[in-house]
């Protein structure tokens, strides 16, 4: 199946996940939803999806932003994307005693 009808987006990769992208800080991917984009990313950067998702849900300690909005507040993984959207992946900075 061709991806040609799907939006192309850019994805900013945090330092800790750059081993999956050969060191690249920004990669491009295709998909009509965030979930599709993660699946597409995993096709070219095997293992990346596992670092972002747990049982199909976004991991607690991963923050995903689409055009600077935290996706937890704007529709989650099923958010519909458009051409040129910018996705940023950032691990939470968190902890506790």
């Amino acid at each position: 199946m061709s991806n040609s009808g799907n939006p192309t987006v850019e994805v900013r990769i945090p330092t800790i996940l750059r081993p999956y992208t050969g060191g690249a800080k920004v990669v491009s991917a295709q998909g009509s939803t965030l979930r599709d984009v993660i699946s597409d990313l995993d096709g070219s950067h095997t293992g990346l999806a596992e670092r972002l998702l747990d049982g199909g849900a976004l991991r607690r300690f991963i923050n995903l932003y689409v055009n600077d909005e935290d996706v937890r507040f704007i529709g989650g993984l099923d958010l519909t994307l458009k051409d040129g959207d910018s996705i940023t992946i950032l691990p939470a900075v968190a902890g506790g005693c």
């Binding site: 923050n63 932003y65 600077d68 935290d70 937890r72 940023t88 950032l90 939470a92 900075v93 968190a94 902890g95 506790g96 005693c97």
Partner: peptide
Amino acid sequence: TFYEFESGDLL
């Protein structure tokens, strides 16, 4: 018992 940077601040 917990700390977390707010997600907008983090970005």
